[in-house]
């Protein structure tokens, strides 16, 4: 009896941390910027000074630091001042600006008839200026490839010893998916997040939303699902191969569908894609399939980032 109250009294007095051996906090390694700067400088000097003689003496190094800081602050302030001055002289937001509104007028007035989408933004990014969105989805894919190259475990970067970084010290860390609170809350929340994400995705052309928004929400749902349920269950739902195939098919579909539309449009042919009734789910011509493709790419990319950061493979 007195044991429990002793613990409570200790905690009240600030001596005892009830979460000490339960969560992943590790007090021996500090988080502070000074330590990190020192370690970084050590690592950088090790890499740089392999084989080359020491270039700067200590005093020179300190002088260089001082000059560097002064120049950095001065350049930042200069850039801030110049940009503020420029923006102050720009024409006012919302009024008849810019002078020529030919482009915006047509988007607003005939956007609904020409694209079939109530959400004009979705019409613009996936119909009028679809080429830019094609590039943007490939930007996401490129980022995923670069992160894969950097972080995926292979024979050269010797990270194959550790499947998941929670087991690095062979200390039993707090497995998130065995925690009852996160598991139960996840069971309720994750399906709701997925349903919301699919709703935002499918209603891209009728209301706010679209490929990027819906895809990000679904990606966030996948991440929370992994945290709540663990890797074994999640790998049965979406495995590495599935994610790869989904990304490839979505991007290929986007390239060829839009390539077909550009080809027929430029040569004056008719592309036989029905516009549908505005307001229905199946409307807007190609906007719905492209939204789904973009959403899939975004979701798989976000999930891929999380996996690469956490366990070293997608």
């Amino acid at each position: 009896m007195s044991n429990k109250f002793a613990k409570f009294r200790n905690w009240l007095a600030g001596d005892y941390d009830p979460l000490k051996n339960v969560l992943d906090t590790d007090e021996t390694v500090s988080d502070s910027r000074e330590e990190i700067k020192k370690e970084n400088r050590k690592i950088i000097s090790e890499v740089d000074a392999e084989g080359s003689t020491r270039r700067l003496e200590k005093a020179e190094q300190r002088g260089f630091d001082l000059v560097y800081r002064v120049i950095a602050i001065v350049s930042c302030l200069l850039l801030i001042g110049v940009l503020l001055f420029t923006v102050a002289l720009l024409p006012r937001y919302g009024v008849e600006n810019p002078e020529s509104t030919t482009v915006v007028k047509r988007y607003v007035e005939s956007g609904l008839q020409e694209t079939g989408a109530i959400n004009i933004v979705a019409g613009i990014i996936l119909d009028y200026r679809a080429f830019d969105t094609l590039g943007e989805s490939h930007v996401l894919f490129t980022a995923l490839i670069c992160v894969t190259i950097l972080l995926r475990a292979d024979s050269k970067n010797l990270r194959t010893k550790y499947e998941d970084f929670y087991t690095i010290k062979q200390v039993k860390y707090h497995d998130l998916n065995k925690d009852k609170i996160i598991n139960r809350v996840g069971m309720i929340l994750v399906p709701c997040i997925f349903v919301f994400g699919i709703y935002v995705l499918l209603n891209g052309q009728n209301g706010p939303g679209g490929g990027f928004s819906g895809g990000s929400v679904m990606g966030a749902g996948l991440i929370i699902g992994t945290a709540a349920f663990g890797y074994e269950k999640m790998d049965r739902f979406i495995s590495t191969k599935t994610a790869m195939w989904i990304t490839f098919i979505s991007l290929a579909f986007y390239s060829f569908a839009k390539g077909y539309v550009f080809f027929t449009g430029a040569n004056g042919l008719d592309n036989h894609i029905p516009k549908g009734i505005p307001g229905a789910i199946l409307s807007g011509g190609l906007i719905l399939p492209l939204d789904i493709a973009v959403g899939m790419v975004v979701a798989c990319t976000m999930y891929g980032f999380y996996n690469l950061f956490r366990r070293g493979r997608t």
Partner: peptide, 20 residues
Amino acid sequence: TNFPLFTIVLSLFSGPLCYM
């Protein structure tokens, strides 16, 4: 006149293809 479009679309498609 369609060839510039083909160069862009084919290279963009080859990206994910080489991933597989």
